[in-house]
């Protein structure tokens, strides 16, 4: 069963100060099956991140339809869903991970992961237990759990990002070049984790620059060129 259907997705940005329209992605079509890992490749500026940000509704699509099969709502259009519905989906079903860490000040790594659960009503004790399990799963050293993540390395931040997103057990994961700043060893670790997530039936769309990284990981790979998706 497909979990996501993208139909004729087009995104343009109108820049008022320049009175100019910038075309980002054009007539993108694909569907994602449950438990499938779809890779998207393409040079910088080709429009890869735009697709993920449209699915996450950080960007408003210009044209097209995005149908998501939600546990809570059934089939729902991510284009016309209300803001409240999108917020619910982000909290409970759709996770987004980039290489950047968006964290509250004075929040430790463990609290950051716990917050993902407490904001959806989980009690503190259970949230702490699950946060610890998730931080172990993503192999963030235990001596870092009670520290503020400002000083973490790129790999440690990514693992924290993944733990923060995965602790909610999203059905759909959007990975926006999460490995961009990682060394080879850290990439291998992330790769192993993604394989484990895939084996647990998480549907994943991932953008990566490193083709070797994607080899054997993705079920399908699309190439984006000049905003147009090629099979």
């Amino acid at each position: 069963m497909s979990i996501l259907e993208i139909q004729h997705l087009t995104k343009n940005f109108f820049l008022h100060n320049a009175n100019r329209e910038v075309h980002s992605c054009k007539d993108v079509n694909f569907s994602l099956e449950e438990g499938e890992f779809l890779g998207i490749v393409g040079r910088s500026g080709a429009g890869k991140s735009t697709i993920l940000k449209c699915i996450h509704r950080t960007y408003l699509p210009t044209e097209g339809e995005m149908l998501y099969h939600s546990t809570a709502f059934g089939k729902i259009s991510l284009v016309s869903a209300s803001e409240r519905e999108i917020l619910y989906l982000r909290r409970s079903e759709i996770g987004y991970v980039s290489q950047f860490l968006n964290i509250m000040p004075r929040t430790t790594a463990k609290e950051h992961v716990m917050n993902a659960l407490t904001e959806i009503g989980c009690d503190k004790q259970r949230a702490e237990q699950q946060a610890k399990e998730m931080l172990s799963y993503f192999q963030l050293p235990e001596n870092l759990w009670d520290l503020y993540p400002n000083t973490f390395s790129g790999g440690e931040r990514l693992r924290l990002n993944l733990a923060h997103t995965m602790v909610k057990q999203p059905r759909l994961m959007l990975l926006d070049e999460p490995t961009a700043s990682l060394d080879d060893k850290s990439k291998l670790l992330v790769r192993d984790m993604l394989i484990r997530l895939k084996n647990e039936n998480t549907s994943i769309i991932g953008i990566f620059h490193d083709l070797n990284f994607m080899d054997g990981l993705c079920d399908r790979v699309y190439n984006i060129s000049e905003g147009v998706m090629e099979g």
Binding site: F13, F14, L15, H16, N17, K53, R57, T58, Y59, L60, E83, I86, L87
Partner: peptide, 17 residues
């Protein structure tokens, strides 16, 4: 709109500014 959408994909001229 959603906060990240307002900050990353603002639609109005003033919001972009």
């Amino acid at each position: 709109g959603l906060t990240d959408q307002i900050l990353e994909d603002p639609q109005q001229a003033y919001t972009q500014q």
